[in-house]
Design a protein around this nucleic acid. Structure first.
Length: 478
RNA sequence: CGGGGUAUAGCACAGUUGGCUAGUGCGCUCGGUUUGGGACCGAGAGGCCGCAGGUUCGAGUCCUGCUACCCCGACCA
């Protein structure tokens, strides 16, 4: 099997090697689109299940809307159309005939959903309306990379409508916190959260909140977004309701989403020179058993011991779920081959069991997060597993958190900023709030404001040295 | 959209100044030996040489055109 390029040699190549060797996805014959393979899709399914539970716990119901959006819908909200129209795929023919009105393949579903919202919402009693859909999205990007940016991708989009701005604020913040918690609990991803600048916000939103992770090459990656859409869409789509005083009001709306990019984020945040390292909560296989034997007798003993472990594991739970344990009993592969294969695929824990171990009544546990090997008595192994899973999950988070902290620094002037930017990472500084400075910084350094953290008149703008209005996080981004 | 690259077996590639039967490694199938960090031997199967034209006695190789994908940048989750 092929070797993976070292991260230090060429991170981008390492990334593509890892996607391929871990069998997450293949290129398809359609430009910018990928085939998500079983190993990659299983990660998506576990991720999806975990997040879906949190979404439902917030009282949001799942729905499904068409992937085709009439052109006139897209055109209804001015900022929105300007933001998205250039990157849309458009269907002009159907059933062999030219369509009277072209259909846009959804680049996001605000417009098609909100046309329907105007029918669903009549009274304040219909509010809040909270729905979510798991769907595919198409955006004709010029530059694509598997999982990080693809022409078609999978995502979840939540859409809510409320009576007041305060409620919409609360919902946008709730979704943001949900993502942050989910990122930590399931994906072991530490993220920074905050607002986007006006320049970076979602087309048509009042403001955009986001989660930002830091990849191991020092680049920022937006992992999730949550928008307070204000009343702009309500205005364009006529989403009005009668309040308690029988007066017509426009709703306040939010939308929020995460995509298959989260898988890309897991790769670039946790991956190492041996390939993928998966957080146990989303790993398709959490524990892989690798038997080692020479004779038929050895094999019988070893497989027998594994069957007992399997039985024991099937009776316990971790985070209220059955533990995903498999035994790699392929006879034609050597143990060494299997070790490498499952390491590159990111399996969190491996159990090795050979004749020597069997004689000693023990087995060897090998952690993917640290590489640490440990002898454990066969009688104790099942019991030890839940804690080890938890250790790996938090261990990956802690490692990533440490990396993020070590690669976040405060800068005060532009020289220092440019210098530190070379090394990568998040840079915190003051900002006067002008889009001109933001633009200049991007033109000159390719760094963008990832997050506007807080209002702060402490210090000076990193670019123009005028009085600072905000603390911001800057970085080069994916 | 600019720059670069590639297109030959499932994958990675080689194929000389055009030359007769299309090559190597990995993988695959069968048999045997192996198995504690990517095992080995033997025998096999597998090709519209991206597509369309052209030059030539003869084209994977030369010429023209096309198409597709990849990589690097600017636009973006």
């Amino acid at each position: 099997m092929a070797k993976i390029t070292k991260q230090s040699e060429d991170f981008s190549k390492w990334y593509l090697d890892t996607v391929k060797i871990a069998e997450l996805a293949d290129y398809s014959k359609v430009k910018g689109c990928m085939v998500i393979k079983p190993w990659g899709y299983a990660i998506w399914e576990h991720l999806q299940r975990g997040l879906d539970k949190k979404i439902k716990a917030a009282g949001v119901k799942n729905v499904y809307f068409p992937m085709f959006i009439p052109e006139s819908f897209i055109n209804r909200e001015k900022e929105h159309v300007e933001g998205f129209a250039p990157e849309c795929a458009i269907v002009t023919h159907g059933g062999g005939k030219k369509l009277a009105e072209p259909l846009y393949v959804r680049p996001t579903s605000e417009t098609i959903m909100y046309d329907t919202f105007s029918e669903w919402i009549q009274s304040y009693r219909d509010l809040p309306l909270k729905i979510n859909q798991w769907a595919n999205i198409v955006r004709w990007e010029m530059r694509t990379r598997p999982f990080l940016r693809t022409t078609e991708f999978l995502w979840q989009e939540g859409h809510t409508a409320h009576e007041t701005k305060e409620e919409a604020d609360a919902e946008a913040n709730r979704a943001l916190k949900m993502y942050k918690d989910f990122d930590r609990e399931f994906l072991a991803l530490p993220v920074l959260t905050g607002k986007k600048s006006e320049k970076e916000k979602f087309a048509g939103a009042l403001y955009t909140l986001c989660t930002e992770a830091l990849a191991r090459d020092g680049k920022a990656i937006q992992a999730g977004t949550s928008h307070n859409l204000g009343q702009g869409f309500a205005e364009s789509f006529g989403i009005n309701f009668l309040d308690k005083n029988n007066e017509s009001q426009k709703v306040w709306q939010t939308s929020w989403g995460v995509s298959t990019r989260l898988i890309g984020t897991i790769i670039v945040v946790h991956g190492d020179d041996n390939g993928l390292r998966l957080p146990p909560r989303v790993a398709p296989v959490q524990i892989m058993g690798v038997p080692i034997y020479r004779s038929d007798d050895d094999k019988a003993n070893v497989m027998g011991a594994f069957e007992k472990i399997k039985e024991g594991i099937s009776k316990i739970k971790w985070n209220d779920e059955e533990i995903r344990f498999e035994i790699d009993d392929r006879d034609e592969m050597s143990p060494g081959y299997k070790f490498n294969e499952w390491e590159s695929k990111g399996v969190p824990l491996r159990i090795e069991l050979g004749p020597k171990d069997f004689e000693n009544g023990s087995c060897v546990l090998v952690r993917r997060d640290t590489g640490e090997k440990q002898n454990v008595k066969l009688s104790d192994v099942v019991e030890a597993i839940p804690d080890i899973m938890t250790d790996i999950q938090t261990g990956l988070y802690d490692q990533a958190k440490k990396f993020q902290e070590e690669n976040t620094s405060d800068v005060t002037d532009y020289q220092e900023f440019k210098q530190k930017l070379e090394e990568g990472g998040f840079l915190r500084s003051g900002w006067c709030g002008s889009e001109k400075c933001e633009q200049k910084i991007q033109e000159e350094t390719k760094a963008t404001i990832r997050i506007v953290e807080s209002k702060s008149d402490d210090g000076e703008c990193v670019y123009c040295a005028e009085k600072s209005q905000h603390k911001v996080i800057l970085a080069k981004a994916y």
